[in-house]
Every structure is written in C-alpha cells, then in structure tokens.
Design a protein around this nucleic acid. Sequence first.
DNA 1: ATATACACGGATCCCCTATTTCC
DNA 2: GGAAATAGGGGATCCGTGTA
Length: 818
Amino acid sequence: MIQMYFTPIDYDYFDFEGRNYARIIGRNSEGRRICIIDDCPIYFWAILKNRLKQAKIKKLIEKIEKIKLDLKGRQTRVEKVELHDKHFLGKKVKALKIFATNYKDLHDIADKLGVPEIIKRRGYDLGFITHYIIEKKIAPLCWYEIEGEVLTNSQEFGGIDAAMDVDLCINLKEFKKIKEKKFKPKVLAYDIEVDEFKIGHGEILMVSLVGENFKKVITWKKIAKKPSYVEYVKDEEELLEKFIACVRDVSPDFLVGYFSDGFDLPYLRARAEKLKVPLSLGLDGTQPKFSRGAIMTGKIKGIVHVDLLRFIQTAYAQYMQSETLSLNEVSKEFLGDTKKDFQIKHSSTLDEKQMRDYFEYNLHDSVLTYQLFEKFWPDLLEFAKVIQEPIFDISRNGLSKQVGSYILHNLEKYNEIPEKRPTYDEIGVRRQRGPVEGAFVLEPTPGLYKNIALFDFTSMHTSIIISMNISGPTLLEKPEKNSNSIETKMGKFYFTKKPGFIPLLLKDIFEQRKKAKAEYKKKPDRITLARSNAFKLLSASVHGYIGFFGARYYSKESSASILAYVRKFNQDTIKNIEEKRYKVLYGDTDSIAFLVDGKTKAQINQLLEELNSELPGIMELELEGFFKRGIWVTTRGGIIGAKKKYAMIGKDNKIKIRGFETVRRDWCKLAREVQNKVIRLILKEGNEKKALKYLKGVAKKLKNREIDKNDLIIKTMLKKPLSEYRAISPHVIAARKMQEKNIPISGGNLITYYIAETRERKKLVREKVKLPDEKGEYNIKYYLERQLLPAVENIFNIFKIDTKEIISGKKQMTLGDF
DNA sequence: ATATACACGGATCCCCTATTTCC
DNA sequence: GGAAATAGGGGATCCGTGTA
C-alpha cells in the first residue's frame, strides 16, 4: 500500500473482464506522474408508477434482478436492485436503482424494462466519466489524499502498468479530499508549418515546440547558419519521429496548439499515416484519436490535447475586442505581442535569410501559444473545478454543454434523478416550434441630448429565473392560487412558488459568483478573478440553456415566460420613470436611458431606490452612470429612430459607442474611423461644425485618390462553404477569386477585398471586387456613396445638414465658410 | 454542429412594368 | 407591328454583424 497527495488531470476508462474501470492520469505533490485505476457502482434509475403496492414492487425487483444479456460479445447482468425515494423533475417519486456490470449496457437493460409499472428510465446517458465523477467525487484538479496498491508488472487489469508510461500506477483503495495545493502543469506548445494547406497534401517543413525552458524547431530544411534552437533531421519521416520523441521526453500534462484540432494534429496524423510512422503520442503508445463530426477533435491518451482557440471561442470571445480570433490578434489583446512578420511563401522560393525568418516565425507561434495557455490556465482550472469535468472537455464544450454538466454534477443536492438527453426526433420537433418573443427595445427619438442617466437591471434574466422560480419542473400544469403567473404569446403560464431545483441551483451559482467577486475585491488575483468569471458565464448562460433545443432541461414555456418578464419589468420601469416626469430616451432589454433634467445625483439615487423597492426577489436596478451627451440617429433613409445604435460620452470623457459602423468589421477602415472621429467631435463639444469640416477634408482626399488603399479594404467573414451560398455577394466573389489562386478557403475565413474602378459600366458591386493585392484603383463613387457618406449622413441629419449636397458640391454650403 | 432574441443595413434576387431594340 | 431584350423599381430574401 502506498499513500500520497494526488490531483486528477485526465480521465478515460477501459473494460476489464466485462467491468468498467476509470483510469485517471494526474500528478502527486512531488510532481510525479501517476495513473490511478478505480471503479465505481454502475447503475441507472427506473421510476415507478404512482402508488404501486409493496408486493408488486417486490415482484418487479425480483424479475429485474434476473435480467441477463449477452451482446457485443459481452455478458452483462443486473447485480442488484434497490428501492429509493427520489425526486424527478421536482416531484417525489419511488425509483429503482438498478446496478449492472457495464455502463455501456445500461441502455440495453433499460430497453428490457418496458413494463407498465415503470414509467421512466433515466441516468444511463451521462457518459461513464461524468457518471464516475458524480459517483466518486474525484473531481478534476482538486487534491486528494489517496491510498492504494502499486501495480508493478502485475497481471491485474491485463498488465496495464507496463503499458503506461507513468511514474507509478496505483489501484485506488481509499481517498479523501484535502485542501488545495499549488500545482503548476507541465505544458508543451506546438505548431507546424507546411507548403500545402489542405490537410496532409504537402510535406511538413518544420515543427516548433515550446515549454518551460524549452524551445525547439525541428526541420529538414537546412541553411548555412542555423539558430541554436533549430535541430536538423534528415527528412519528414525523421521529423515526425523526433517530434514524438520530444513530446515523450518532455512528457507534458498539456500539449497545446492553436487551431490544432482543425489543423496541426490532423496534419501530423495524415503525414504519419502516409509515411507509415506510428504517431504514438499517447502515454500507452497509442495514436491520437479523432472524433467524427463537423469539428474534429484530437484526443491523446494521458496527455491533454488543448486547442486554445476552441476555449477562447466559447469562454472569452464575447468579451473580447479582437475582430478575429487569429493567433495574431488574440496575442495582441492578451499578451501585447504579435506574430513575427513573415510573408508565407512556398518554401522552395525562400532564400537563406527568409528561411531563418521562417524558423523564427514558427518558433514564435509556439511561444505565443505557450504564453496564451499560461494566461488562460487559471480560467481553464477554475472552469474545470466549478463544472467538474476534465480540462479536455472544458476546453472544447460550448456553453450549453457546460451548463448541462454543471447541473448534472449538482443534482444530488436535490435528490434529483437526471432527465435524459432529447432524442434526435425530439430535437427536430423542438426546433420546428420556432423562436419565442424576445426582449423589448424602445424606439429612440433621433437627436443630440445632454445630461443622461443610465439604469440597468443586474443580471436580469438570471434574477428573474430565481425571483419568479421559473423552470420546466416548476411550471404548473393547471393555474393555482398563490403562484407566479405571466402572459406570453404562447398563453398564460403559472409557476409554483415552492422553490424548484433549477432556480435554486442558479441561486447558488449567483451567490458563489458574488462570493468570488467579493474575494477578488479583497485580494485581487488571477484565480479568484477566474472563478468569478466562471460563475458569471455560467449564470448568464442558464437562460440560453433553458431555451436551447438540445438541453436536457429545455422548456420553451419557461423561456417565453422569462422573456415576458424581461419585457414587463423594463416597460413598467420606463412607465414609472416617465410618471416621475423624466424624459426616457431609450431602453434595450435591461437598460433605460433618461434625461437628468437638472435633478441632482441624490434625487436620481432616490428615484432608483423607489424603483427598487417595488422589484420582487433578488431583482435589482442599478445606476450604470451619468453621461454628458448622447446621440441617437434615424434608420437609414427613414425618419424613425434606429435601435441598437447610439453613442454617449461619460463624465470622464469616456465614449461608449454601440452598433454604429465604427464597431462593425464589415465596413472599411476609412468609413469607420471617420465616423468615429465625427461622433467624438460632436460628443465632446456638442458642435457639429468641426466634424463637418473634417468630413469635407476626407472626402476631398478620397476624390483625389489620396487615401491609402489599406484603409479601403473591406473584411467579411465567409460563414459557410462557398457552394452553399444562394446569394452571390461581393465577399463570395472575393472568396472565389482566392480559391482560383489556390488559397484554401473554408467557412470561418475572413475575406478581404476592395471595390475597384472598372473599364465598362458595371451595375453590381460584386463585379468590381478585387483582392487586396490585385492591381487596380479604388472606386471613388463606391467609397464616397456606399461607405463614407452612409456612415455619417444620419449623424449630420440630426443637425439638418445634408451631406450629400455638400460632398458632391451641387449646392453651396449653408453653414458659412470654414 | 448547437446558449437566446432583436435589430440594422448592404447586396442580391426576383417579379413586375415600361421602354428600347431587333426583325 | 410585334416579339424579345433590357432597364429600373421595389419588396423579399440572404447575409453578416452588432446589442442585450
């Protein structure tokens, strides 16, 4: 027997003699790599019909206990059956806990239970790892004092210890959770360079590897003076072998790439296959396994393969400034560093110096990836600990999956049996029912306003779910007295006031977030911040989860009700503010902007307090801030006020711009910058004259072809494969042109192009599209009339200035000379 | 494949009518 | 003179990208 402190990092499982065993790879407190083997009770639930007689239940149990199955070359049987008092969807039920030998057979056993006494069968679709973590509570990256039997050259489990490249293999006997210990994971970042982008179609030229005190570029492209970090190999075959040897040598906990699920790892595999080099990266010598599906996922046994891009996509993208999630932009935002400048060309055309730059470039990509991982590690760590799923999944799962996992791991507190995943057909039906009515947006009156106050509801959807106790299980079938009710387009819905487990769970998330936030304020550090963010993201996603057709706890009625409350509280509050004789300018979902109108700060706070006193439960309205000026414009060509488009300037001169072309990446830089400057000039001084003068200057430059073509590039995302486009828009044409030039194009590519002059008169914009490096002159008419003017004309319209006339020079200026 | 709805606005698509062109 | 081609207007639709 051996005893040690241990933290789990990666989980998988195997079958031995028909039984499931979890295999957990982790580290002990000395930093040694440990593999522990453990099992857990395997069972699912059969929910019984109401008021079954004891004798009948007993008979049923006896019958079930006799079930034996022989499938997939494996014998399986029910080992025992217990009767339990449980909850299902918030209701008390009697349920049978049916134990069996193999998790994979639970579904088949459940299929054998089609008897009238059993109304539902649940809990067989969680996945073994999730089931195991729930059952044993050995959660990722927590710390445990473990006790077990060392496996050395033992025949137990088919000689597993000999196959695994770890320091120690232990058959777990006892464990208990202990206080957190410091843990610094071993990380290796990697990146490959190739000549042909299509997976496996070209040779791998080089691969870089970066770890702590470790920097290497492996290549067979040889030059005269090689940098010290470069290591030569004979050919591509040897490059693969060397790469594998390096990974095995460093033996990292995490092998990290950027877009490596979609590119680097599949490329390595494809080349390895072609050259018949086994890509044995796994700790047991196995090759990476790729899951099918639109997005490929590469899994390496024992080493957690992390594609950072995917984690950033789900957990961070919505809070980021970057326009794309390219390694370059993300590094700039989070590290203040960028990729090395290097124009990638076919390697055969590169001279010695360029090749040296290429090495440097390749290495630096891994350096950035390594540093980004360090940056995001606290977030990955806290997410994994909060949600209790392995980092491999945490780093790839979308928000619905994360919320779903969190719920599953916390059901036991409420004695709940898990609901099943919807079937494919059920999802189809749910999707067909269409969307529910969303939030309310108040139409603004266009204009420039002074002294504005902004209120907003704190975590509005979340606080409504909690305060009004909304969820599928708390929805009442029939109206009841003393319940919460709300009118929606789908009908009137009633929710019990007896707290349901989903609102309670959400309340718990909400409170834990508050706690983490307070902790962070007291002692700001990366970990408490990450924890706070994890709870924040989780709590903000629950409403989306409830309305998501793939969710276990999907409830369209609940989603409709939440949104109906959102509208109601916002509209009622607007009415209340107006009744107090304030002029409300604008409101969107959970916010309300209104004129201060000479009132003092204390009076506004008094108003806030009054409004808050009428709100139920934990709902709260807060003062977001005071603003010196704000502008709202009309819709294009219309007279009505445009929603989701405004700009305000705070007391601190900080400018908040929402929805305007300035913040949209599918407008050219010139239009965006000019609009931004115009907005700033107007907000800062409340005077449009300077802005107009500035605009005139830019228009003149544009007409004289003095504008840099780079400022006129339009960027648009290709969102799907080229062939799927029904409307052939300019960016589709640009993408086709790129394809003709053998630049690989796929959904997710940011397409750049500009609009050029053409010899003949062409009607459609798409006929004037040119790629940035294509020769041509920019189309003055297009950029004037379709970019520059549209971006600012609505703003000047507020001041009754018609920019069209001024720019085209058809009419004398009405504002005097400047 | 998958958190939700609302909203703007460019560009094309598509149908219609009026006008021009062609034989 | 009549059919076919073309232009253009305007609403519908597609598409991308924001706000919340």
